[in-house]
């Protein structure tokens, strides 16, 4: 089992994801450079948070055009697991792999704090282990999930909302949406950082309930 952790210039949660996957989740992980074009030998993709390309133009917009993203798109279309966290979520939305967009927080300030989340669907592997309200950190300035009415109807109708904020809506997201999946449920994007909550002394282990999903994936021998 080996996860590709994509590194863009300006990614800054890449090392955190790498270490959380290897040391805490206990699976393989390797960095993949944004200019590479292949994901051969990998069983899942982790698009980490940070400020790819300095958030210039729009958060995630430039990264979504990077050479590796073609391979990520193919990987996703093949129904294989892709998770994007924070800036990674923004990149997946910009690439069109997930619906909606992330806008400036309603208070127009960066927010770093713990939030409570509930799994809003049971139809994907990402939420299978989340059987209670969990507490994990957010750290973003542009994390307010928005989409048009039609998309929202589809998200709810097709059960594509993965996570919702509970006991508050820190960034003012539409319908308290913290994370969404694609139609097949193999691609997850979420603003909170599960890779920051994998150790008791680092703010708890609730993030493991999400990341453990990666241990359930059947490894391919390709």
């Amino acid at each position: 089992m080996k996860v590709a952790v994509i590194r863009f210039p300006g990614s800054n949660c890449d090392q955190d994801a790498y270490h959380a996957l290897r040391s805490d989740v206990g699976i393989g992980a390797e960095y993949v450079w944004h200019q590479d074009r292949s994901l051969d030998g990998f069983d899942a993709v982790f698009v980490p948070g940070g400020f790819s390309y300095g958030d210039y133009l729009r958060c995630g917009a430039i990264a979504s055009e990077a050479p590796i993203m073609e391979a990520v798109e193919q990987f996703a279309q093949d129904g294989r697991p892709v998770i994007g966290v924070c800036n990674g979520f923004q990149i997946l939305c910009e690439r069109g792999l997930l619906p909606g967009a992330l806008m400036l927080n309603v208070e127009r300030k960066f927010l770093c704090q713990n939030v409570e989340l509930e799994a809003a669907t049971k139809r994907c592997l990402w939420t299978a282990g989340v059987d209670r309200v969990i507490s994990i950190p957010i750290a973003h300035g542009e994390g307010r999930y928005i989409c048009d009415d039609e998309t929202l109807k589809r998200l709810n109708g097709e059960d594509l909302v993965a996570f919702r904020y509970v006991n508050g809506n820190p960034n003012g997201s539409t319908d308290r949406i913290a994370g969404v999946i694609n139609g097949r449920g193999n691609v997850l994007g979420l603003m909170p950082h599960p890779e920051r909550a994998t150790r008791a002394n680092l703010g708890g282990t609730d993030g493991m309930l999400i990341l453990k999903a990666l241990t359930l994936i059947e490894t391919s021998s390709r």
């Binding site: 770093c112 704090q113 750290a139 890779e195 920051r196 680092l202 703010g203």
Partner: peptide
Amino acid sequence: VFRQYDQQVQTQTVILPGGGDAAVLAPR
């Protein structure tokens, strides 16, 4: 003030602002 700062990136911060008399980090 401090909620506007990312206090956790690099995932080594054991005691965050407001949690103790000083910050504590656990370097890898």
